[in-house]
Amino acid sequence: MTTNEESELFRQIVVPHLADALALARWLTGSLHDAEDVVQEASIRAFSAIGSYEGRGQRAWLLSIVRNTCFTWLAKNRPKEIVLVGSAAEADGTELALQEDPGLDPEAELIQRADTAAVEAAIAALPQLYREVVVLHDINDLSYKEIAAMLSIPIGTVMSRLSRARRQIAMQIGRPS
């Protein structure tokens, strides 16, 4: 495969999913700056491996590379404790977006922001194994099968981790599951 063919394949497979890659790296590292470094390294790895891409699950393939790169980077650069700062809106590089509802009064807007912040804090407080599954499934919209393949675990384990994570989130924000 020539460099031009590899570059075109990279543009088709990787580039459309870079925002998701950055969001995942942001959730895992807790820092936009660190996430950018991780995604850059993951992009280099993806480009190097583009010739071995098998044609299935572009997004899952890239996010798997980002996840592995992230854990390698964290092992080199951070203590074992990972703490998320900021919000999910910052993680994907956007402002906190409220639904545009002309009938939304300032009080309702404040409650909506507080609810969003509470959920984000609850996700950030999850143990890494649970947080990872929640982010991959509920935020990045990957299927159980894609997550299981990415993490090399059975689908049942994905489902049980997701269930436990959701239960912990509900307890954290004070709502029964």
Rank of each mutant, 00 (worst) to 15 (best):
M159T: 14
D141P: 03
L62D: 00
I65T: 12
L18H: 04
A21L: 08
V14F: 06
A21P: 06
G93C: 00
F71T: 04
T3R: 13
A46E: 09
H137Y: 02
T3M: 15
S64L: 02
S152R: 15
I153M: 04
Y53K: 03
L28S: 05
L104S: 14
L62C: 02
E81S: 10
G55D: 03
E109K: 14
Y144M: 04
S163E: 11
P154D: 14
A149I: 10
E6N: 15
T157I: 01
A25Q: 05
V39S: 08
A118P: 06
V39Q: 05
L126I: 05
L62Q: 04
A149R: 11
I139Y: 02
M171V: 09
L151D: 05
A89L: 01
I123F: 05
Q12G: 09
L84W: 08
L84H: 06
V38E: 06
R67L: 14
A91V: 04
I153K: 04
D34I: 11
M150I: 05
I123V: 15
V14K: 14
D34T: 13
M159A: 15
A108L: 11
I13M: 03
A42M: 06
E6G: 14
I155K: 13
T69G: 13
E90S: 08
M159V: 08
T157A: 10
W27R: 07
E5S: 12
M150F: 03
E54D: 03
A125I: 01
A121Y: 00
A118S: 15
L142E: 04
F71E: 11
R11Q: 14
L162E: 06
V133R: 03
V133K: 09
P16W: 08
